[in-house]
Simulated scan of single mutants.
Amino acid sequence: MGPHGKFYWNELLTDDVEKARAFYSATLGWTFSEMPMDGGHAYYVATLGGEPVAGMMDKTDILPPQVPPHWFSYINVDDVGARVELLKAAGGQVVREPFDIPGVGRIAIVCDATGAPFGMMTAADQG
């Protein structure tokens, strides 16, 4: 994982995973592997040259239908819990309090003081 404060991961939330996978395979040469998630959902990890480059998942059961497909970014932080508290003090909002994804890390979904959403993430192998 990169240094604290650096963008780390991007994922596409879409309502047509197969169409998106075909598009990014054709245009960027990405290949995809499926990673099962809770509730029977699937998360797809895109790779290029054997390296993970992005993620993708179906937004249908996660977001309201009026939210269009979009890319979502995560910023690496040294301590998600502590950084969420700083975010709150600085006028940001927490959409989803910190939670753990086994083998991946600790994540929080937040908005900055202007309302722009992003994720904070501390990788499992980082601490």
Rank of each mutant, 00 (worst) to 15 (best):
N10C: 12
W9N: 01
K19H: 12
G40E: 08
E34Q: 10
T60A: 08
V53T: 03
D58Y: 01
P52L: 09
M57I: 04
M1S: 13
T14G: 11
A54P: 01
F23G: 04
P52T: 10
T60N: 03
T14L: 06
S25T: 15
G49L: 04
F32W: 14
M57E: 00
E51Q: 10
G55S: 03
K6L: 14
F7A: 13
F7V: 12
G29E: 14
T31V: 14
S25Q: 15
T47C: 09
T14H: 03
Y44D: 00
Y43N: 02
D58I: 02
M1K: 07
L28W: 13
H4C: 11
N10L: 12
F23R: 02
A42Y: 04
D16I: 10
P36Y: 01
G39N: 04
P3A: 15
L28Y: 15
Y8D: 10
E51G: 07
E18S: 10
S25V: 09
A42M: 08
M37W: 06
A26C: 11
P36W: 02
W30N: 02
D58A: 05
D15F: 07
D16F: 06
A22I: 05
D61P: 01
H41Y: 07
H4G: 08
W30H: 05
L48T: 06
V45I: 09
E51W: 06
G2H: 12
K19C: 14
A42P: 02
L48S: 13
V17H: 00
D58P: 00
E11H: 03
Y24L: 08
A42D: 11
A42L: 08
G5H: 06
H41N: 07
M56Y: 01
G49A: 10
T14Q: 04
D16S: 12
M57P: 00
D58E: 05
G49T: 08
A42E: 09
R21I: 15
D38A: 14
T14V: 12
V17K: 00
F23P: 01
A22R: 08
G39V: 05
W9P: 00
K59M: 04
K19Q: 14
V17P: 00
H4I: 07
F23E: 04
G39Y: 09
G2T: 12
A22V: 06
V53G: 02
T27M: 13
A20N: 02
E18Y: 02
M37D: 12
G55N: 01
D58S: 03
T27A: 15
G49V: 09
M37P: 07
H4P: 10
G39T: 04
T31L: 14
D15P: 05
G2C: 11
T14Y: 01
D58C: 03
K6D: 15
M37R: 06
V45D: 00
M37T: 10
G2N: 14
S33R: 11
E51T: 06
E11R: 01
T31N: 14
Y24F: 15
T31A: 15
P36I: 05
A20F: 02
F23W: 08
Y44F: 07
A54Q: 04
V53C: 08
E34V: 06
Y44G: 00
G50V: 09
D38S: 12
L28Q: 14
A54W: 03
S25E: 15
